[in-house]
Amino acid sequence: MTDVSLQTAYQDEPQFSDYFALLKPRVMTLVVFTAFVGLLAAPGGMHPFVAFCAILFIAIGGGASGALNMWWDADIDAVMRRTAKRPIPSGRVSGDEALAIGLALSAFSVVFLGLATNWVAAGLLAFTIFFYAVIYTMWLKRATPQNIVIGGAAGAFPPMIGWAAATGGVSIESVLMFALIFMWTPPHFWALALFMRSDYDDAGVPMLTVTHGRPATRRHILIYTVLLAALALAMGVTAVAGPVYLASALILNALFLKGAVAIWRRDEAMAEADNYLVERKFFKLSLLYLFAHFGAILADQALARFGLTWEVFL
């Protein structure tokens, strides 16, 4: 090794933050928040420290599946502008290291969640990691334009895991929270695919925009948004929600439907003219949409602690 190559190797040496980036911290915020809501919305109490540990292990499990996803997808991540700076394609972390970290943290998170809470929650976490890393990443992502629809289930499991950690089981309320994220994922990602124009084409990922075209994607966004709105509003009259949720859902779904209709009515020429302004706004709104719905569930649970439930208002 020459002095120059040695110096370059030193400069490229991974830092702790590079390993942390393998865990997809931004996705982790969604996992943490929805798992937290699932755990708090569940009936029965839980020791605060055990609850904290449960959320931590769910987050670590989610991060581990992210590392496994980055290990498998390093080739296409290098091609896409949005993902080219990730630790593996940028050369800061090797694929083998990502695989080792992903496997080790998967095992750690599942075992510790089982020991801290119960094995139903641990089993659900193990299935979530398997679903995201194997079924979505290795199998569906490069094989079908329905990748996002089915793969969305992986991101929808955290509130169910949180609920299971608190109760030791699965119930209709936790399935409804799962369904809300499951139905939200397709319009969220298809809006992203519309304005990240050539990324998925370049990588050869069969997103709906690539296989069925952009007008079909716009139509699909509208259809899924209508179904999502129906589900979100129906949830408002179930035990998991309350007045805050229903009021928030009415406003958010009206805005979301308005955005979906606007996307459906546009064509590529109109979108290019304003640099996909409507699609970008819809994508940002989708993030607020999910956080606000789960925030509202949390607010209703807080009100319920003070005896303020539907029965008081009706």
Partner: peptide
């Protein structure tokens, strides 16, 4: 050069001990 990694691993291990002890 390895300060960040060493510090990160060290803090992670301390946190792990705290979690196991706390649980």
């Amino acid at each position: 050069r390895r300060f960040s990694r060493n510090m990160g691993v060290g803090l992670t291990l301390v946190a792990l001990i705290g979690i196991v002890f706390g649980l």
